[in-house]
Amino acid sequence: MKVLVAVKRVVDYNVRIRVKSDGTGVDKDNVVMSMNPFDENSLEEAMQMKEADVASEVIAVSIGDEKSEDTLRSAFAMGADRAILIKTDVELEPLAIAKLLAKVVEQESPQVAILGKQAIDDDSNQTGQMLSAMLGWSQGTFASNAEHVDGAINLTRETDAGLETIKITLPAVITTDLRLNTPRLPKLPAIMKAKKKPIETHEADSFGIDLAPRLEVVSVAAPAERAAGIIVANAAELVEKLKEAEAL
């Protein structure tokens, strides 16, 4: 079976972002970009499925501008068999992304699509669930463990109360949590080879989907900054301060 993995190029998680002074967005000039961390977990999961002979082919898909090729090269380096870039110069919302991914699913007929539970830039946590609903596939979100058994997956999910296990039959959409696995570090020869692999490119507007944003961004602002407080000498002084502040 084929496995489709969606990968997104985002501002690296170590970067402390800055809001543009005109309030239109976040400054992305000259900041380090990398693959959304959850997508590395998605790829790792797909690779493990391949190594366990559950999957035969791993296809990485990215939707974004030309530079998303870098992200797809990272996917190749981790072991993806093929890479598809859906090119767009505008930022698309999760709804539009899910619609495009549904089209790719239609063309490629995978049995499993793996997405990160959220992208660390927009933090929407929507795309996987939308894709699952559009396709009418089973949904397993926030996965911290996945066991493949006869056309189904016993999927353990991280919930607010602990863990829960559900059984989902294929085809299915999985969204990954960070504790699902430890993404492999690509080896140098794989990174070199990845540079030469072909990337299939399609224009986003060639799919006949309405990609226009539904949400109008009114403004983007920096949150109120928290001022640093004081260093106290010891526990007794701390308790005194907390009592003064009427917190205790």
């Binding site: 809001v19 830039d121 933090d123 539904r214 009114v218 983007v220 602002a221």
Partner: peptide, 14 residues
């Protein structure tokens, strides 16, 4: 909030 709360986005839904 977006970017782990490092920016606050105001959006209008149509």
């Amino acid at each position: 909030p977006i970017y782990a709360g490092n920016a606050l986005m105001t959006v209008k839904s149509n």
